[in-house]
């Protein structure tokens, strides 16, 4: 103070003091913030492959590979029944056409025959009539009657034969048709059963995928649950979760409380923290995941 110029020294000291404190607070704030942000980049999502698929390797890729490789195997099988069916159909159509032709020919022949017979009868009739006119009127009338009866008989007989033929043809046709129908039906049944098998396989795959992803989602959420202390019993909390196709959670609704609000809140918080949830790559399956009904309890597996 008695030294040369104390005022500037005091100012310098004050400035240095402020600097030291600023440094100190900056250090503290930086270190504390750094500590709070540090755990985030080291987040690891651990999940186990679902138990019912022991053949599938634990990595998440193979199931996708399986689903990708299987359809091509199935597809070459699929066109065959169609081709067979079409061939059968074609054959059947050809047969039917042939039968129809045959029938038409038979009918035409029968008609021709009938026409010939009729002509012959008429000729005979004319001759008889001429003869009768030549002989006697009575005889003519009698002969006429007899001739007419004879002609009628002949006609009836011819008609009978024709009818029999027609009936036989018809029966044959009906038989063939029914046979064809039966075969086509069986083919269709076979085809549909194959399709059903394919569909069932696909649905099984989808079910497996949905189960796998349900397990994944539950595992991810379960990893985020911070169990409140002093939890009693094994409470079950049912929660309805609305999810976007991207996996982002839009809404969390408690449908059935576990009876312990702390656990309900912990689960809800965990679901929000777990967003985005893992979504199955198959859009059909992902569609089922838009609205998830999840049940949580602290002691499950």
């Amino acid at each position: 103070m008695r030294s040369g110029n104390p005022a500037p020294r005091r100012g310098l000291a004050a400035a240095l003091t402020a600097l030291v404190h600023l440094l100190f607070f900056a250090l503290i704030a930086y270190s504390v913030n750094w500590k709070t942000h540090a755990p985030e980049p080291v987040m690891v999502e651990l999940w186990q492959p679902p138990a019912p698929v022991p053949a599938a390797p634990p990595t998440p890729l193979p199931p996708e590979k399986v689903t990708q490789t299987e359809p091509p195997k199935a597809e070459p099988v699929m066109p065959n029944p169609d081709i067979a069916l079409e061939e059968q159909k074609r054959k059947l159509a050809a047969q039917q056409a042939r039968q129809a032709e045959l029938l038409a020919q038979q009918q035409a022949e029968a008609e021709k025959l009938a026409a010939k017979q009729k002509k012959a009868q008429e000729k005979q009739l004319a001759a008889q009539q001429l003869a009768a006119q030549k002989l006697a009127d009575q005889q003519v009338a009698e002969q006429k009657l007899a001739a007419q009866q004879l002609a009628k008989k002949k006609l009836a007989a011819q008609k009978k034969i024709l009818q029999q033929k027609k009936q036989a043809a018809l029966r044959q046709m009906v038989e063939q048709q029914t046979r064809a129908e039966f075969s086509s039906e069986s083919a269709r049944a076979l085809n549909s059963s194959r399709q059903a098998a394919l569909a069932s396989r696909q649905s099984a795959e989808q079910a497996q995928m949905s189960k796998e992803y349900q397990d994944k989602i539950k595992a991810k959420i379960r990893g985020k649950i911070i169990l409140p202390e002093g939890l009693q019993g094994n409470p079950h909390a049912e929660i309805d979760v609305s999810v976007l196709p991207s996996g982002d959670v839009t809404d969390v609704k408690l449908t059935h409380s576990s009876g312990q609000p702390a656990y309900d809140e912990a689960v809800e918080r965990a679901i929000l923290k777990a967003s985005p949830l893992p979504m199955p790559p198959n859009p059909a399956v992902a569609q089922q995941f838009r609205n998830l009904d999840l049940t949580f309890s602290p002691n499950e597996n």
């Binding site: 030294s3 020294r9 310098l12 000291a13 004050a14 240095l16 003091t17 030291v20 404190h21």
Partner: peptide, 19 residues
């Protein structure tokens, strides 16, 4: 206290160096 002590630390440091 921290501000004043740091201020005196600097003041005394300058003073003793000068002395």
């Amino acid at each position: 206290a921290s501000f004043v002590s740091w201020w005196h630390i600097f003041l005394k440091w300058f003073d003793l160096r000068r002395a």
